[in-house]
C-alpha cells in the first residue's frame, strides 16, 4: 500500500457557514471511515494538500464533511470548488478519542471559532451513545454573531436530551442575547465538578492557551484536558518530521493530546 496515494472524493454539497467558513460534503470512493479525533489529508488536485479533521459523524459511512476556514493557499482554492468537482483524500490518521473511558463522566466540549468543526465530529459521536455519559456540555465562542459556525444546527442541538449548550461572542450586536466575552467566560459557574469530567478544547492557539489555564484553575486534571494540537502535518503518519512537538508527533501521537503530555514544553501553543 502506498500511503502517499490519495483516493478521489467527489464534492456533493458546499454549505456556506459564515463569510469565511464553508462545509464541504464529500463522497470518497471507496468510502473513507474514521473515528472521532482522527484527521484526513485533503487535496485540491494540482494545488496542494492540507490536514483537516472531519466535522461529520464517524457513523456516517458514505459521505464525510469538512468545515474549513479560508486562510491559506489550499483553502483559498478549496473555496472555488463546486458540487460535482473532484478532490482527493487520504487517511485517516492519528489517535481517536478513547470514548469508552469517557463513560459516566461529564464531557465539556470547548470550541473557539472554526475550532468547533473537529469538535462537531466528537459531539456527533457522543450523541450516538448519549446515555453513556453523565452530560455533554457544548460551549462555543466566536468573535461576533455572524462568525458563528453551525448556527443552522444549534437550534436542534438545544433540544437534545443530556446536552447543555452555552455560547459567547467577543463582540455582540443588537440581536445577540447570549453571553458576551472571550470563550473562557463560559466556564464560570460550571454545572459539574471538574473532577467528574473532562474537557476537549479546539480553537486558535491563544484561545487554547487561556482555556487550558482556566480549566487548570477550575481543577481539571492535566490528563483530563484534551487539546487539538494540529500543526504542520505534511505526511500525516509520523515520517516527515514537521509536526514534532517535544518528543511527540502531532500526527501519530495526536492530533488530540492531553495536557499532561505537553505541559513540560516551553510553550506548546506557539
Amino acid at each position: 500500500m502506498n500511503p502517499y496515494e490519495p483516493r478521489p472524493a467527489s464534492v456533493k454539497e458546499v454549505i456556506v457557514e459564515t463569510p469565511t467558513i464553508r462545509t464541504f460534503v464529500l463522497e470518497p470512493k471507496p468510502p473513507l471511515s474514521f473515528r472521532a479525533g482522527q484527521f484526513v489529508e485533503l487535496s485540491v488536485p494540482g494545488v496542494g494538500e492540507a490536514p483537516f479533521t472531519p466535522s461529520s459523524s464517524p457513523y456516517e459511512q458514505k459521505t464525510i464533511e469538512f468545515t474549513i476556514m479560508k486562510v491559506g493557499r489550499v483553502t483559498s482554492k478549496l473555496f472555488a470548488v463546486r458540487p460535482g468537482d473532484t478532490l482527493a483524500v487520504r487517511g485517516p490518521y492519528g489517535v481517536p478519542y478513547a470514548l469508552g473511558s469517557y463513560e459516566d463522566r461529564h464531557i465539556l466540549i470547548l470550541g473557539g471559532g472554526v475550532g468547533l468543526a473537529p469538535l462537531r465530529s466528537l459531539f456527533l459521536a457522543l450523541l450516538h451513545n448519549v446515555n453513556a455519559y453523565k452530560h455533554i456540555h457544548l460551549y462555543y465562542g466566536a468573535r461576533m454573531p455572524k462568525e458563528i459556525v453551525y448556527d443552522r444546527l444549534f437550534k436542534q442541538w438545544r433540544t437534545l436530551k443530556n446536552v447543555e449548550i452555552r455560547r459567547s461572542v467577543d463582540v455582540g450586536d443588537k440581536t445577540w442575547k447570549e453571553q458576551v466575552g472571550v470563550v473562557t467566560v463560559l466556564l464560570d459557574k460550571l454545572p459539574f465538578k471538574p473532577k467528574e469530567g473532562l474537557a476537549v478544547v479546539c480553537g486558535p492557539p491563544l484561545m487554547m492557551k487561556f482555556s487550558t489555564q482556566r480549566l487548570l484553575e477550575l481543577g481539571f486534571a492535566d490528563e483530563d484536558i484534551y487539546l487539538s494540537m494540529e500543526k504542520n502535518m505534511s505526511c500525516g503518519f509520523g515520517k516527515c518530521g514537521h509536526c514534532r512537538l517535544g518528543e511527540l508527533f502531532c500526527c501519530k501521537d495526536g492530533p488530540v493530546i492531553t495536557w499532561d503530555k505537553i505541559k513540560h514544553l516551553e510553550d506548546p501553543f506557539v
Binding site: 487535496s43 488536485p45 494540482g46 486562510v71 494540529e230 504542520n232 516527515c240 518530521g241 514537521h242
Partner: peptide, 30 residues
C-alpha cells in the same frame, strides 16, 4: 520531507522533497 503536488493532466503528481528545519518556512502552517 515535505510533499508537494504538481498539476499533471487532469490530476497531479505528488513529489516528496527532503526538507530541513533550519529553513524559515519549515514549521509554517496554512
Amino acid at each position: 520531507f515535505l510533499l508537494y503536488d504538481i498539476p499533471a493532466g487532469k490530476g497531479f503528481e505528488r513529489t516528496k522533497v527532503l526538507d530541513f528545519c533550519y529553513h524559515a518556512a519549515y514549521g509554517r502552517v496554512g
